[in-house]
Write a protein that binds this DNA or RNA. Structure first.
Lengths: 242, 242
DNA sequence: CGATCAGTTGAGAATGGTCAAATTCGGTGG
DNA sequence: CCACCGAATTTGACCATTCTCAACTGATCG
């Protein structure tokens, strides 16, 4: 079982996959790629893009507006499947960029379509994983639409903490985080200047520190209370499969 | 072909579905329901919810925050599939409410899971439709994060116009729209008061009018220019299928 | 004919943005 | 090891978009 890819590990935590399913998943993992920090893995408008399964490093998906502004839609951490929509849509509607140096497996469109035809159980599991990502995008949307800057930041940090904990890369007291304050600004719909002020405010309130590539959570309960964070949308039940 | 459901019509516009696929889809359409305006079709926290295919009327999906604020995630119009995520997640992470009186078909979880096992081509088409919805949520997120109130409104109206045109319910000069200014406010992350001001501003600029259940677009090109609207994300190519 | 709900408008407040300038920090070449 | 460079972070002063609160209108409904 040490041979399982990060995605297989994640899915297996929720679904019992058959030997067939695991074999198909293993084929997803044949094309190892190393991507340098800052490189684009998929770019907006690209046709026939591949998908990727992230095993090391962080990526982010974003859109650029006419005036050059950037909105980050989400971040991907190890174990995440990225670019599924770029495969189903012939042309990608967003850019995915490596935040750090990345180790990933490239998954061809044909691999995915074959999986849908031949291993429906795996297909449903992949759809569940995609739905979980969508649930995160929805919560992110709620964050942007209806929460004040400090609450927004707190919620964002708690979501990252929960996601990283699931893959063993963090805990309630914090995690290693390669993001800059510009990343936070573009994800949270704020300016970098205001992000800095909000971070200071949270630090001075004794809730959390974001410094030198590390997030330290000083008061987990306090942060949850401020953010009104409810982990439900991350669906720890797993997919409905028969 | 008159017997096709709205969803079958929408999917057929993009994918050639086999007799098997169509037969499976027809089974989706057996449980007709009428839902009164204001009723909840799926509520947050509900377990084992059904999905629905909308044939008449408008619905909206939203989340309520701790402080009672509401964020509308998206609207559904005839031809839309709603609640797919509520089926895959055992418990729904959002509420779906009828904006008007609705005619819809209830689709059981088992119908969908069977479809995935038996008609992979249809499953892929459904996944594509879900991805298209996700693309709209993503664009909505960008709207909230990085666009000013007037641009946000213009973009939202143009998206609705494009979606309704696809199902024959509107055109470039406008459409019938049952939404209140409160709906707009909760969708766009604004207050109803500010929505009203923005609408006045757009009306006085000769771009569009939102009044008495109808949106009238006076200057389509001007609105597109203001919004920086690019229809690409609605993916008119259809899904990649072999 | 109240009651209620959607829409409209004004005045003042506040959250977050803009602009500008330091300061810190991690590298990199000497 | 040290000087230096560019990127990231930090802070202040001022500004503007959007919110809040409050009042009023008009339509609809029982």
């Amino acid at each position: 079982m040490n041979q399982l890819s990060p995605l297989a590990r994640k899915l297996s935590a929720f679904v019992a996959l058959s030997q067939d399913d695991l074999a198909t998943l293993a084929r997803f993992d044949q094309r190892r790629r190393t991507i340098l920090a800052g490189r684009q893995m998929i770019h907006e408008g690209q046709r026939n893009a591949s998908a990727f399964i992230l095993s090391e490093g962080w990526a982010c998906a974003y859109k650029i507006l006419r005036d050059g502004e950037r909105q980050i839609v989400d971040f991907q951490v190890p174990g995440d499947f990225l670019g599924l929509r770029s495969v189903l849509f012939r042309t990608s509607d967003h850019t995915i960029e490596a935040v750090t140096r990345i180790e990933a497996s490239e998954v061809l469109a044909s691999d995915i379509l074959d999986a849908f035809s031949n291993t429906p159980r795996l297909a449903t599991a992949v759809l569940w994983a995609a739905s979980r990502d969508e649930a995160m995008v929805v919560e992110h949307l709620v964050n942007l639409g209806r929460r004040a800057a400090d609450v927004r930041m707190a919620h964002f940090i708690l979501e990252l903490a929960a996601r990283l904990e699931l893959v063993g890369m963090g805990a309630r007291d914090g995690f290693v985080c390669p993001l800059t304050q510009y990343h936070l600004a573009d994800a949270l719909g704020l300016t970098a200047v205001h992000v800095n002020r909000v971070l200071r405010q949270l630090r001075e309130a004794g809730l959390m520190t974001f410094q030198k590539g590390r997030v330290t959570i000083h008061d987990f309960e306090g942060l949850v209370e401020l953010a009104g964070f409810d982990i439900g949308y991350l669906d720890q039940d797993g997919p409905l499969l028969r």
